[in-house]
């Protein structure tokens, strides 16, 4: 502790003074506990804690997602984390909304407590900003992850799908995996019924989509024939299919898949842009204020001016009364004078 800290000195001083005054120090301690935290504070700090823990999760996710290698890819972990974070974010969002509602409902009860209101509004705003920054970070990580997966896919394509001529020979080698395409659902999407890839030519014989099943491709996931494209946060999911015995169809499907994918990612990005917009709007408000913006002073001055005016009015009224009195007395005297004379 540096010399700056004088808390102990203060408390020692207070202690000795209170002993001198025979105030039992236990009474002092009792005093303190009366400050029960209000519902609002408790809820707010709870949310803050949750945001913090989410951020911690996000951090570990970031580290995982940044790994670019094909072999040290741990999809299970990543997916679990993304799921958890997603759930967290929605939960926190709901809680904040609840808190806001609670705060609004409190307002009419305490019309006088403007500063309390300001405080709680600011708490909520800061929570929201924090959540917003967390989720935008989350989104950017997901984007990164998607990008990585794309890269991986293109790299994998180089090995798994050599020029079309050798399609038949390679088919044999891949038959094992090729038979069981295991779609990976992008975990962060809202679970929704998977749509079969439209425009699928009838020639694709094998049951390609094990619908809705979230079986993680445990066996040989790193080079399975089905390639997962991580969707954008907006609830997209893509499946890409590679069918080794029909290259033409494959190419067709691939191109369709890419088209859909790009459209979807565009939509997701747009969604993100909108959310960013709202964030910018909310931030604009307090960006460049300095604390000595003299609003407070002005308010103070207005109040004191009002008081002065009120005082003046009072005096004026007093004067008026006095005037009437004096006038009345004069009249009485005048009457007396008239009567006497």
């Amino acid at each position: 502790m540096t010399i700056r800290d004088r808390t102990t000195e203060f408390h020692a001083c207070a202690e000795s003074l209170s002993q001198r005054n025979n105030v039992a120090s236990s009474a002092l301690l009792g005093q303190h506990s009366q400050h029960a935290k209000s519902e609002f504070t408790k809820a707010a700090s709870q949310i803050a804690r949750e945001i913090n823990s989410t951020m911690a999760k996000l951090h570990s996710l970031t580290q995982l997602a940044k790994k670019k290698t094909l072999f040290d890819d741990r999809p299970t972990e990543i997916n679990d984390l993304t799921l958890a974070i997603k759930a967290d974010i929605t939960k926190i969002n709901r809680q904040i909304a609840l808190l806001q509602q609670h705060q609004r409902s409190q307002q009419p009860q305490q019309p006088a407590a403007k500063q309390i209101q300001e405080h709680s509004t600011n708490v909520i705003t800061s929570l929201q900003t924090k959540l917003a920054s967390t989720s935008s970070e989350f989104k950017s990580i997901l984007e990164l992850r998607t990008q990585n997966m794309k890269d991986q896919k293109s790299r994998r394509d180089q090995y798994t799908a050599p020029p079309t001529a050798s399609a038949s020979s390679s088919a044999a080698g891949y038959s094992l995996q090729g038979q069981q395409p295991t779609p990976q659902q992008s975990p962060f999407s809202i679970p929704q019924p998977q749509q079969p890839m439209f425009g699928l030519p009838p020639s694709t014989s094998s049951p390609l989509f094990s619908d809705g099943l979230r079986n993680r491709s445990t066996a040989g996931s790193s080079d399975s024939a089905v390639i997962d494209m991580g969707g954008m946060g907006g609830g997209s999911q893509q499946q890409l299919l590679m069918q080794s015995n029909n290259t033409a169809t494959l190419e067709y499907i691939e191109s369709r898949g890419q088209a859909i994918e790009s459209i979807e990612s565009t939509i997701a990005e747009l969604g993100q842009i909108y959310s960013q917009f709202t964030q910018i709007l909310s931030q604009q408000r307090e960006m460049v204020q300095r604390i000595d913006v003299n609003v407070m002073d002005t308010e103070m001055n207005v109040v004191s001016a009002h008081n002065e005016l009120a005082k003046f009015l009072e005096r004026l009224q007093g004067n008026r009364w006095l005037m009437i009195q004096v006038f009345g007395i004069l009249v009485v005297f005048f009457m007396l004078f008239v009567i006497i004379s």
Partner: peptide, 10 residues
């Protein structure tokens, strides 16, 4: 009776 509430003096 409030000295306990003073958490820090710096």
């Amino acid at each position: 009776n409030t000295s306990v509430q003073v958490s820090q003096v710096y």
